[in-house]
Design a protein around this nucleic acid. Structure first.
Lengths: 332, 332
DNA sequence: ACAATTTACACAAACGTTTGCTTTAGCGCT
DNA sequence: AGCGCTAAAGCAAACGTTTGTGTAAATTGT
């Protein structure tokens, strides 16, 4: 049906091989004249390359796959933008797959769809791969790199912020504003990320000479509802004067629940969000945040998998950006 | 390097053809015994199918591509979830491509990456394709369908809400709450969607006997900043008592700008958002909205392209969901 | 016991490229 | 004139599947 390289060859009066070289712009192999003839024929026929065929013989493609878990936390877009920008710079195309939300079967599905075709490399955005699926990835021999997630047990390449620093800097920020009773809301206890952030938090507190009460830490899964639930647990007369939200969304959950409980932010309660996506600017008061550089994470990811060399882990810098959700406490 | 069907054949002592049929589970063609032998060999070799080869001969694949424009308006996720759900029900895989934000070159790039390989069909989420790129799509003979966007000039399949109704119902809702001086903020004037919504808005007003002032309508591109700018234009003593925001994000822009101007929502100004995504629940007051059913749009999209029959356009229902941003006016 | 049918498998072509190798033609040099 | 050299293009194999056709063995019916 569709025009092939052979049709062009016939029309231009050359061999298919030559057409291939012209189309690939291997200028060393053909004269300008035939080049023009072939281009003209291709245009006339409305030729569309059959990439499946090309990939079959070259065992290569120029697409890089980004697998993202569809959790409601929304930092995926800046990462993807970073990936896209860097990929295009290298003349690579990007396809994105959703891997569900921790469902191993959906992960496997997304994984096999990319592994079965010769993608150049695989980027996994914040997906905590089920143990059973990791071998699939490794066996494929395709370069891969996790983004915005870290591990302590397995040796796999990942790029992320320094989670310990995130917790530490967040806490220091609040301490610097005069707070001492500081909560941490919606953070998980099961993964590296959560544990590290908590460790940084505890260390900062300890350095300041305050020993955190167990109920200051409200565990959760970074979601809006986790934030709500956490604030519900703190109650209308919270023991804490400031709360670190485990994610932007979680912090908004805290914020809204606080309001429901009759608390003013930041007058009665200070808030500091972790992530620093657009959401911080959407709500009022705008949320102060320790912000991750998701865009750079994306470009670093592409660089990592393209380099192929084994920089196994990389850290992208964080910065705290003050907005309007923290009240500076006068010394008591 | 990687194991092929021939390696399996050798190991299992059968022909490659048989292996292919076993792996494709064409049970009519092999005995249970050889089936098991082949499966065992495949497992032992860690066989991964080479989809490029398969697609080359079958000229078919089971992936459907979703192309989304990366505008900051965020309804893409529910649509994609809908697509994903319906696709998996049909045993199809979904890949997602970003097509930039109205940049024809990026659109072309995304388009060719999917056209060059045998995707089953193409769904375009809210991308207003540059005129020069449409032929690319049509020439490819791949079934496609636009989602969440409509056209008046070109005859292409699309699925969207009834934009006229969106404008009409939004306005009626505000009228029903006693408002008469109603603004429309951040809506575009160049595309079908904006024009239709405006037409519905004007009609509802007219039916209620009110003639809209030109400055009640503030044009824009549906973005947060468009909302801000619109509110800035309305000013601190707005002529209107209620405003329809062209999108959730635009409405939040209006909301925040209103607050900056010293206006209380809904006490001084009522707001109604169009779209009804999660964002409406994030801000305070929660935004009342006329909500589109994006999820259903996604499933309808894959049904449409799968059916292949030419239901050219389809409408998904809308509903108005009241939250907290509209004040009921007592009759004056 | 033999033809007819079915079952189970092998064989080989085909899909549309890419690319190493070969061939041809044209040219300058001695 | 004969040589080597280069530029240009053709030839054909290969990539890993799928699938229509051919065929031997097993099964059934008479």
């Amino acid at each position: 049906m569709a025009a092939t390289i052979k049709d062009i060859a016939k029309l231009a009066g050359v061999s298919p091989g030559t057409v291939s070289r012209v189309l690939a712009n291997k200028t060393a192999f053909f004269s300008q004249q035939t080049g023009e003839k072939v281009q003209a024929a291709a245009a006339k026929l409305g030729y569309q390359k059959n990439t499946a065929a090309a990939e079959l013989v070259t065992r290569q493609s120029n697409v890089i796959a980004a697998i993202v878990n569809s959790t409601k936390t929304n930092f995926a877009s800046p990462i993807i933008e970073g990936i896209q920008a860097e990929a295009h710079r290298r003349d690579l195309d990007v396809i994105i797959l959703y891997a569900g939300d921790g469902d191993p079967e959906q992960q496997r599905r997304a994984l096999t769809t990319v592994i079965e075709r010769p993608v150049r490399s695989i980027l996994l955005l914040s997906v905590d791969l089920a143990a059973e699926n990791l071998p699939l990835l490794q066996r494929s021999r395709i370069p891969f790199c996790f983004l915005s997630i870290s591990f302590d047990d397995v040796r796999v390449p990942y790029i992320t912020s320094d989670d310990w620093q995130v917790g530490y800097q967040a806490t220091r920020t609040l301490l610097a504003a005069g707070h001492r009773r500081i909560g941490f809301a919606g953070v998980d206890r099961d993964f590296h990320t959560g544990r590290q952030r908590l460790a940084g938090y505890r260390r900062a507190l300890q350095e300041a000479g305050v020993s955190p009460q167990p109920e200051w830490i409200q565990f959760g899964n970074y979601s809006y509802t986790a934030g709500q639930a956490a604030m519900q647990a703190y109650g209308a007369q919270p023991d804490v004067t400031a709360i670190i939200g485990a994610s932007d969304l979680a912090t908004v959950g805290v914020l809204n629940q606080a309001r429901s409980l009759g608390l003013q932010v930041p007058a009665d309660l200070s808030l500091l969000a972790i992530d620093g996506t657009d959401i911080c600017e959407l709500v009022r008061p705008a949320l102060s945040s320790v912000s991750q550089n998701f865009y750079d994470m994306g470009v670093a990811g592409v660089q990592q998998v393209s380099a192929g060399n084994a920089i196994p882990q990389k850290i992208t810098p964080i910065k705290v950006v003050p907005r309007a959700s923290i009240r500076r406490l006068v010394s008591e």
